[in-house]
Design a protein around this nucleic acid. Sequence first.
DNA 1: TCCGAAATGTGATTTTTATCATATTCTGCG
DNA 2: CGCAGAATATGATAAAAATCACATTTCGGA
Lengths: 143, 143
Amino acid sequence: MLSNSAKYALKAVLYLALHTSEDNKMMVKDIYTNINVPQSYLAKLLQELSKHDIISSSRGPKGGFYLSAKNLGLPLIRIVDVIDGEQRLRSCMLSIHECDSENPCALHHLVGNANSDFIKNLEQTTINELILEVRAGKSVLPL
Amino acid sequence: MLSNSAKYALKAVLYLALHTSEDNKMMVKDIYTNINVPQSYLAKLLQELSKHDIISSSRGPKGGFYLSAKNLGLPLIRIVDVIDGEQRLRSCMLSIHECDSENPCALHHLVGNANSDFIKNLEQTTINELILEVRAGKSVLPL
DNA sequence: TCCGAAATGTGATTTTTATCATATTCTGCG
DNA sequence: CGCAGAATATGATAAAAATCACATTTCGGA
C-alpha cells in the first residue's frame, strides 16, 4: 500500500511539523534517531521532499529542515505521491487495468471502499490538521 | 498491501476454482497464459500453495493442479498468509508496533477501518463464495 | 574573507522481490 | 518394466527497493 520510503517520509514530515518552524530548524542528525529511520536514507528522502517544495530547508550554519506555514497546508497525499509515484496507491487489488466500480474485479468487493476512502482522506487532510489532532490528544505519534 | 506474488497466487487460485476439479486438472503451461503470470514464477507459487494444502496436485500424465471441494471451502486469507506471511497485511500504516484502535497512530484514522475490514473479508470469504459471485455475474475476473 | 556547518548530488552496496532455468522425482500407461 | 509427462526441488539471474558513503555546494558568522 505504502512503501517503506513513504512511511518514513510521512513520519519525518509529521515530526518536522511538530518540532520545527521557520526559525527553529532541525538537522537530519537530530531527526533520525527520534523517528527511527536510517540517517542517510532519511537525508535522501528529505532532499526529495524539499526539492518538491513539500518541506523547506536552508543550508549552512543555523540551517536545517523545517515546515513553513505554506508547507503545513499541504494535503498528505502530496508526500506519498512524490515518494511512491501516483500509481502505486491507486492500482487495483489484483493489478487489473480494467477494474473499477463499474466493472469490479472479483476482489473489488472485498476491499470495498477501503482503498478509495483512504486516498480521499489523504487528499483532504492537511499536514496541519493531522498535527492538530495529535496536539489535542486524539491520536499519537509514537515514532 | 498485497505483494505481487500474492496477487498472482489469488489469480491462479481463482482461475483453478473456475476451471478445474478433481477429474479435470490443469498444467501450469495451460494456466499461465490465461492469467498473465510468468510461467516458472507461477509454477513456484502453485507448488508453495500445494505444499500448504491450499490447492491440490498430482504428478505424471493426466496430472496437474486442481481444487478439491475441501480446497474450495478455504478462506481467501489463507492464500495471502501463505505467500506473504501473516505480518505484511496486518502491519500498521506507519509500521509502528504499539498502534491499534486503543492507541491509534496519527494515520490510523485516515485508514479508518479500511484495512481491518479488508482482512475480515478475506477471513470470512471462501474461495467458493467468491466464485459463486463471479458465476452469478456480480463481479468479473478479467485475469 | 575564510572557515566550518549544514544541505545537496551522485553513485556504490546490500537486501528483498521477482524471474528464469534446470535437474530430480513421482506416476499413469502401454 | 520402462518411458514419457507431469509436478517438485534447487539454485542462478535480474530488477527494484532500501541503505550507505562521500564529494560538492551553499551560507552564516568570526
